[in-house]
């Protein structure tokens, strides 16, 4: 199977914003979260104790093993429910598969990867839809439950909060470098392990500490998702790029010019809202724009909870979880990048 790039296959966030501007938003008091705040999923209130979290995501292969691709695509789709503070419950498969071009075993393996990952998350896949198309694409449409009072959104970041990232960055760069055979097997394995890793444990820590603001880092990169959070929360966000944990040789790959095209699309989108500190290392800057596939959670933790949240994340096995930035009062540009 050939690889095409996971979440970097998203359309440009700038184009998307242009299109969404012309889509009228439905008006309904039960819609608690919609695309207005660029959140990870929509949330619809059923009653005072229950709201549904709805989300979908699918993309072309990020790796050559169909089973692993299925796992990664499912982990990525389910992640949006975790980012909203919800418990994923049900899902439908979305599959595009070139039946004449690829062996049906690959189809079965992708589905099996998806099923296994969904089971790990406690999600039941109860149906789906396949059309014939090349290259293959796979993902899930997921429904989760959330208590309406406990929704975690992009708009929940407050000045004084610390930003914690739960997974290291670099999946976009590592996977691009893999196609060009520039990267070690160990780094590829680590990137795949991280992409397959559910954001479940991170989400449990968020819920335990009653975190209000979070998002997951996917195709728009750390900077793109942090910007969406800053805008929705009407604050500015400072990212300390030197503190961002990275997968293996990510820094050196960027220094060698391995900057995937998606990074430049993301830079375009963020540029007008971006203030880079004068001495910021160019490579560290570009890491902020790397499109992640099934990336970690970015949570906005009040200062007095930060230590405890971080300790719990580490205890939950997310050893790389780090404080990578702070939320400040709206100050000029939405996004500040420094070393």
């Amino acid at each position: 199977m050939v690889e095409y790039g996971g979440c970097s296959a998203k359309i440009s966030p700038k184009q998307l914003e242009e299109i969404l501007k012309y889509l009228p938003l439905p008006i309904d008091p039960n819609i608690l979260v919609d695309i207005d705040t660029h959140d990870d999923a929509g949330v619809y209130r059923v009653n005072d104790n229950l709201a549904l979290v709805l989300t979908t995501d699918f993309f072309p292969p990020v790796c050559s093993d169909p089973y692993e691709f299925g796992q990664i695509a499912a982990a990525n789709s389910i992640s949006d429910v975790y980012a909203m503070g919800g418990d994923p419950v049900l899902a439908l498969n979305i599959m595009m598969f070139p039946a004449a071009k690829l062996p049906m075993e690959a189809y079965a393996e992708i589905m099996k990867g998806g099923y296994d990952k969904a089971s790990e998350a406690g999600v039941r896949i109860i149906g789906g839809h396949t059309i014939d198309d090349f290259p293959p694409k796979y993902g899930l449409a997921v429904v989760g439950y959330v208590n309406p009072a406990k929704i975690i959104t992009n708009s929940g970041a407050h000045p004084g909060d610390n930003l914690i990232l739960t997974k290291p960055l670099g999946t976009g760069i590592i996977m691009a470098a893999q196609r060009l055979k520039m990267v070690s097997e160990a780094d590829i394995l680590e990137a795949k392990r991280l992409m397959k890793l559910l954001n479940k444990s991170g989400a449990e820590v968020m819920k335990k500490h009653d975190i209000k603001g979070a998002t997951d880092i996917t195709g728009f990169g750390l900077a793109g998702h942090a910007l969406k959070m800053a805008m929705a929360s009407k604050v500015s966000v400072t990212l300390n790029m030197g503190k961002v944990p990275l997968i293996g040789s990510t820094y050196h790959l960027i220094d060698d010019g391995c900057i995937p095209g998606a990074s430049f699309r993301n830079l375009e989108f963020v540029d007008e809202h971006l203030l880079s500190s004068p001495g910021l290392d160019y490579n560290l800057k570009m890491i902020a724009f790397d499109a992640q596939t099934s990336g970690g959670l970015l949570m906005s933790a009040p200062a007095d909870k930060t230590e405890a949240v971080l300790a719990d994340l580490h205890k939950a096995g997310l050893e790389s979880a780090s404080i990578i930035g702070t939320v400040i009062k709206r100050d000029g540009k939405y996004l500040h990048l420094s070393s």
């Binding site: 290291p168 030197g242 503190k243 961002v244 944990p245 990275l246 293996g248 820094y251 050196h252 220094d255 001495g279 910021l280 290392d281 160019y282 490579n283 560290l284 050893e319 790389s320 780090s322 070393s339």
Partner: peptide, 20 residues
């Protein structure tokens, strides 16, 4: 050409690659 104010810091120390 490239902005690398303290390149050594970033390459050798600045990034969390150290096992804890």
């Amino acid at each position: 050409e490239m902005v690398h104010p303290e390149a050594e810091d970033y390459c050798d120390n600045g990034i969390n690659h150290f096992e804890k």
